[in-house]
């Protein structure tokens, strides 16, 4: 486990956080039901994500068992309405989580329209933002004034951050990553996407104003530290996004 700050740890080598004083695990951007939407658009990707998500979740729990889990938005993929498959996948996933966690907390993302319908069945509360102690949990798609946030630590998703690395001879390697750093005196931590299908945005290539999250467009992203994930293997740490820009 890699300590990010205080009581916050990244669970190696997974896209998940462990926060010890809240006794909780945090994951973001699951995009369940991706394949259904894809097939409706004429891209017939076989349904594999659900199975993979459960396997990863099992491994995470094996590494660190917590009482609670926070799903940091975009649990499902479709914007409008809920398809039958999506409904079933989300339900099944919540069923699955209920085995391991006493409490499930959902923070709503921009894809999570109608999520409350599913959540209600499980008596899970859905929050736009969730706060506890000095933590603020948001998905990250809505703009906010960081200065006015009362909590010291902001945990978010939405961006699907990744970094791009190039070897001497120009091979591009893409790693999903955590980003963390300071903004207006607060600590900001961005989670990588949990979804198998999520295409990351290469934060060290894309200019700041092109970032997805309006929150991140306002912070000094170049000063943020990077924890890259070598899938199924380990973490790889880098001192900052800004310095990585020089190596591309």
């Amino acid at each position: 486990m890699k300590k990010i700050s205080g009581n916050i740890f990244a669970i190696e080598p997974f896209p998940a956080l462990y926060i010890s004083d809240l006794d909780c695990t945090v994951i973001a951007d699951l995009h369940l039901g991706y394949e259904t939407i894809a097939s409706e658009c004429g891209v017939f990707v076989p349904r594999v994500q659900f199975e993979k998500s459960m396997q990863t979740m099992e491994k995470i729990v094996n590494k660190k068992k917590t009482k609670r889990i926070i799903l940091l938005g975009d649990i499902k993929h479709e914007f409008s309405g809920t398809s039958y498959h999506e409904y079933r996948e989300v339900s099944a996933f919540l069923d699955f989580l209920s085995i391991y966690f006493v409490e499930i907390i959902i923070v709503k993302g921009n894809h999570d329209t109608f999520i409350h319908r599913v959540a209600k069945k499980y008596r899970i509360e859905v929050f736009d933002t969730f706060t506890e102690k000095d933590y603020l949990f948001v998905h990250g798609h809505k703009d906010m004034d960081i200065k006015k946030v009362r909590e010291d630590k902001i945990i978010m998703g939405h961006e699907h951050p990744s970094i791009a690395l190039f070897t001497d001879i120009g091979v591009k390697e893409k790693l999903r990553c955590f980003l963390y750093g300071k903004a207006y005196g607060k600590e900001v931590i961005v989670l990588p996407a949990f979804s198998f299908f999520a295409e990351g945005s290469d934060v060290n290539l894309i200019p700041k104003e092109e970032l997805l999250s309006p929150v991140l467009r306002k912070v000094d992203i170049d000063s943020f530290k990077v924890i890259g994930i070598i899938e199924g293997d380990s973490f790889l740490e880098f001192p900052s996004v800004g310095k990585l820009r020089r190596f591309v």
């Binding site: 894809a38 409706e40 658009c41 004429g42 891209v43 017939f44 990707v45 299908f197 295409e199």
Partner: peptide
């Protein structure tokens, strides 16, 4: 026909075809 160019009356952009 694993990835369609045209489906249900929509032209699927190459960008979407490119998805992952």
């Amino acid at each position: 026909f694993l990835v369609l160019r045209n489906y249900k009356g929509h032209k699927i952009s190459v960008r979407k075809q490119q998805i992952g």
